[in-house]
């Protein structure tokens, strides 16, 4: 569906995207994660035909995006990170305008617009002026707009930014629905856990390079060799910490006000032994468990020192 090969974008001497290669199979939701300035927007703008690559190629459905912008535009729906709306225009007129820019005949527009507004749940705002909509509604409207010519690939640059938790969930629902309609979706975000819930594949990008790619589980597995153990005593914190410090397999002990965490490098038996020691030493342990891999931490580790 989407194949990026050795994509390079330089602004003068600065390299924003540095030999980036990735491939997005048809029907997937591909998450594009990275810290600020990683090059997500730059890459997506190149995909959308709004920017030319310095080197490399972007193939969409076998079409070279940089060489055939016309064919490209029919196939992609693009939602930028920042966008504006026109004054004095109602929601239906807004949609009608963009339908016109794709050359959709007047007759077909009505039904189509109703459908799309239904998908993004804006039917009740049909006759409202677009500039009177809330941010989340504008975001959904922009999504509907990017769907107006029934593109097979959606490129969404941080569609969830600025949305409240509820709106984020709704956005996710909409995207899942679009996926079930057969669309391929590339979506960017700063937040890996947010994407992990809905993306089949993710690519972590940092300083213009692809730092890791694959399914969320794969990435987690590859990047978390250490086990992190969480302990919470009801009391006797000092005593517990003293015992833990004595254990050779315990590293990186972190003390919080009510609980503690440590990296554990040993067998299950050894771990059970530690718990036994704590209990025998009369430490009232209420919780002692292995922490699930933390996506946030993985993200921090992958995207290098500066952002931690």
């Amino acid at each position: 569906m989407l194949e990026i090969k050795d994509l390079v974008k330089r602004y003068g001497k600065f390299t924003a995207v540095d030999h980036l290669s990735l491939s997005v199979p048809e029907g997937t939701i591909y998450g594009f994660v990275g810290p600020n300035g990683a090059g997500k927007t730059t890459t997506m703008r190149i995909m959308a035909g709004l920017l030319t690559a310095t080197e490399g190629s972007v193939m969409i459905d076998g079409i070279d995006a940089t060489k055939n912008p016309k064919a490209l535009r029919e196939r992609i729906g693009y939602m930028p990170d920042f966008f504006g709306v026109y004054d004095n225009l109602k929601v239906t007129e807004y949609m009608d305008f963009y339908a016109g820019t794709y050359g959709i005949p007047y007759k077909e527009r009505g039904g189509m617009i109703d459908n799309l507004l239904e998908i993004v749940d804006l039917t009740h705002k049909k006759e409202f002026y677009v500039d009177s909509l809330s941010r989340g509604m504008k975001q959904r409207l922009c999504l509907a707009r990017s769907l107006i010519h029934d593109p097979s690939l959606l490129i969404l640059d941080e569609p969830a930014s600025g949305l409240d938790p509820r709106a984020r969930v709704e956005m996710k629902e909409i995207l899942k629905q679009l996926q079930s309609m057969g669309k391929t979706i590339v979506i960017s975000s700063h937040i890996l856990p947010e994407l992990a819930e809905m993306c089949t594949q993710v690519g972590i990008i940092d300083h213009g390079r692809l730092a890791a790619a694959g399914s969320v589980q794969e990435i987690m597995h590859r990047l978390t060799q250490k086990r992190v153990i969480y302990v919470r005593p009801a009391a006797e914190m000092e005593k517990m910490l003293r015992i833990l410090e004595e254990q050779p397999a315990v590293q990186g002990l972190v003390e919080n006000t009510l609980d503690a965490e440590f990296d554990f490098d040993g067998t299950d038996e050894e771990l059970a032994g530690i718990l036994k020691r704590l209990v025998l030493a009369d430490v009232p342990v209420v919780a002692f468990r292995e922490k699930e891999g933390n996506l946030e931490e993985v993200f921090m580790r992958v995207t290098g020192g500066e952002s931690v």
Binding site: R73, F83, G84, R145
Partner: peptide
């Protein structure tokens, strides 16, 4: 108004 990009990605 940040609407130019939206116009440029269309078929116009």
């Amino acid at each position: 108004r940040q609407t130019l990009d939206l116009l440029l990605v269309t078929k116009m």
